[in-house]
Structures are given as structure tokens and as C-alpha cells.
């Protein structure tokens, strides 16, 4: 069985945030509420200061604490290992947001980061929380894909609407193969330095498996026992201990 996972090479990541904007547009994110954030940290003093960054999608944990605490079982894990929210079942209680050690869940009706509020500029009707003019054709509330309804929590879906259509048994999803590019998660597809890899963690011969093995793929906050399906490679494959910008 395929178990989708992601590998992010911090030695290649340039901190450009194209993953964030590709995701913003693909998944109709509100400004400043990114499923895929890049975090920046600084330390030390002039003339030798230190600046590092850390891209952070949902970890799609093997043991997702968000799922375990969900009172309505709105958060669930697919057979292929993707953690999703069924918006038809979500009651917006935000327990999952507290339980998630990675801070990658978003409630629909928060105060906007930027005024004027895009939700007022492009108002939704009925359940739809807003209606951006560039809205994509996909809307799948049962898998938390598309425009959020009011009152729910949403999160990165690994671009479920794309990967779920990939041919069965595919080991890696990459932009390099024109036949597969439409199935690649937006952040992986656009990553200019190719710092992101996406593939089947259960396939020992997938590129992601090889990278994790060859380059000591590390997972974030191992002590929580969540067992992320996102691995980091490179110089600072841990969240730095110093102050966030």
C-alpha cells in the first residue's frame, strides 16, 4: 500500500516561499494563513549574524494527535496515509489545533491578517466562507479540499485532489515526468531548487526512501511520537532553538 510522504532538503531550500504561494493559489488560502509556511529564525550578532529558515507543511503524521482528539472523527487518515479533515463533520471546536505539535491547522473565521479582508471583498454565499475570483474547479468537502465553509478547521491535504488521481503504484511524484506533473502537490511541483520530494515511503526503492536512508532524514519533534511522514535533510534539520522573526 502506498504511504505518501515528503522529503525537504534544507541544504537546497532557498527560503523563497514559492511553496507558500503555489499552495495559496491552488488551495485558495487566505492571505497570511498558509498551509505551507516558511519560518525564519535569527541568532548571534553582527558582523556574524545567523539567519536560517524552515519550511513547514502539515507533517501527515503516522500517529496524528489531531485525529486522536477530534470529537467528531472529522479528522481522519486515508489508506494512503494522508491526514484530512471532513468539513461535513468538523464542528470547528479547534481541539485539533491545540493537539497538533506543529501548528499547521487553521480555523476559517479568524481575524484577517491583512485589511481590507479579502472575505469582504470577495464574499461567499451560503456555507462558502469566501469566493475568490480565481477559485479552482475542485471542491470536495469530505476531504477538506476547496473553499472552506464557515466554522471549520482546515489544513494541508498534500494536494489530495491531485495525488489521489495518480496512477496506482507510482513510487515518486515529480515535475520531471510530464506524465505525472498534474498529480504532484503544488509546493513540490513548483520548488525551483528541487528541495522537495514526494513519494511512497513504503516503497524501499522510491527516491524519498533513498534520500531518507542516504542522508539521514530527520523528523520534527520525534519525542511527541507523532511520527511525521515529512522528513528533513541537511544542515539544520531541526527547528532552530533561537528566536523567530
Amino acid at each position: 500500500m502506498t504511504k505518501w510522504g515528503m522529503v525537504i532538503d534544507l541544504d537546497k531550500c532557498t527560503g523563497c516561499q514559492a511553496c507558500s504561494t503555489a499552495c495559496q493559489m491552488e488551495n485558495n488560502r487566505l492571505p497570511g494563513e498558509n498551509y505551507q509556511d516558511v519560518l525564519y529564525y535569527t541568532d548571534r550578532s553582527q558582523p556574524t549574524p545567523k539567519l536560517v529558515w524552515f519550511p513547514r507543511p502539515c507533517m501527515h503524521c503516522e500517529e496524528p494527535s489531531c485525529m486522536h482528539v477530534c470529537p467528531t472523527k472529522a479528522t481522519f487518515k486515508t489508506e494512503e496515509g494522508v491526514v484530512l479533515v471532513d468539513w461535513n463533520k468538523c464542528i470547528g471546536c479547534k481541539y485539533c489545533m491545540i493537539a497538533c505539535p506543529y501548528g499547521v491547522r487553521f480555523y476559517t473565521d479568524e481575524k484577517p491578517v491583512i485589511e481590507p479582508n479579502v472575505k469582504d471583498v470577495f464574499p461567499g454565499t451560503g456555507d462558502l466562507s469566501w469566493n475568490p475570483p480565481y477559485k479552482g474547479p475542485q471542491q470536495d468537502n469530505a476531504h477538506g479540499v476547496g473553499i472552506q465553509p464557515h466554522g471549520v478547521v482546515s489544513k494541508c491535504t498534500f494536494c489530495y485532489h491531485k495525488i489521489s488521481k495518480a496512477p496506482k503504484g507510482t513510487s515518486d511524484l515529480s515535475n520531471e515526468d510530464p506524465a505525472l506533473r498534474e498529480y504532484v502537490p503544488a509546493c513540490v511541483r513548483t520548488c525551483a531548487p528541487t528541495a522537495r520530494y514526494f513519494g511512497d515511503l513504503d516503497n524501499p526503492n522510491s527516491e524519498v526512501s533513498r534520500l531518507i536512508s542516504d542522508r539521514d532524514g530527520a523528523r520534527l519533534l520525534e519525542h511527541t511520537g507523532n511520527k511525521p511522514q515529512v522528513y528533513y535533510l541537511g544542515r539544520s534539520a531541526v527547528v532552530p532553538g533561537f528566536k523567530k522573526s
Binding site: C16, Q17, A18, S20, T21, A22, Q24, M25, E26, P132, P133, Y134, K135, G136, P137, N175, E176, P178, R181, A186, R189, T190, C191, A192
Partner: peptide, 30 residues
């Protein structure tokens, strides 16, 4: 309705990739 912009694989500068600005082009249109 224009709803997504990705780098073109046919283009030797883009090679299927984009910078953070590129994806926001839909917003420029609308």
C-alpha cells in the same frame, strides 16, 4: 476562470518551476 499558474516544462528558464510571485499572477488578473 483562470485558477492556476505553474511554470512551463517547455520553457528553458522556467523548467516547470516558478518563483513565489509567479503563482500570484491569477490575482493580478482579478
Amino acid at each position: 476562470r483562470v485558477h492556476a499558474i505553474y511554470g512551463s516544462n517547455d520553457h528553458p528558464i522556467a523548467n516547470g518551476k516558478l518563483c513565489p510571485k509567479g503563482h500570484l499572477g491569477t490575482y493580478i488578473l482579478y
